[in-house]
C-alpha cells in the first residue's frame, strides 16, 4: 500500500485527508485505485487519458514526467506526491 500525499488544494476532493493510501504496481494502476475511493480527484489529476498538465506527480520525490509517466513502477513503501502549482505569496 503506497502513501499518496495530497497538496492542500486537492484535499477537499479526498474528504480533507492529507495522506491517503492506494494500491497499484504502476502509477497508472495506483491512481485508478485512488479514484475508486475518491472519484472527484480524477477530474483534477487525470481528466483525460493523460495526467493533467497542472498537477505535478512525484514518485519518491522524482517527477514522473522524467520517469516513465503513468508506467512508473510504484513500490509498496513508495510515497506519491500530487502537487499543483501554488502562487500565493501575499
Amino acid at each position: 500500500m503506497a502513501k499518496v500525499r495530497l497538496a492542500p488544494v486537492l484535499r477537499s476532493f479526498a474528504g480533507g485527508s492529507k495522506i491517503v493510501n492506494a494500491q497499484g504496481d504502476t502509477l497508472g494502476a495506483l491512481l485508478t485505485n485512488l479514484y475508486q475511493s475518491y472519484p472527484s480527484l480524477k477530474e483534477q489529476i487525470q481528466p483525460e487519458q493523460e495526467l493533467s498538465r497542472f498537477v505535478n506527480v512525484y514518485v519518491d520525490d522524482q517527477d514522473v514526467r522524467y520517469l516513465q509517466g503513468l508506467e512508473t513502477p510504484v513500490s509498496e513503501s513508495a510515497t506519491v506526491t500530487l502537487l499543483p502549482a501554488m502562487a500565493g505569496g501575499r
Partner: peptide
Amino acid sequence: CLYPSPPPPALAPSCAEAGVLGVLP
C-alpha cells in the same frame, strides 16, 4: 519547466480566499 501552463481557478490557491498562517510566509 515545472509548470508549463497555469492551473484552472479551482486549483489556483491564490485566487480562492485561502488564508495563510501568519508565521508561515
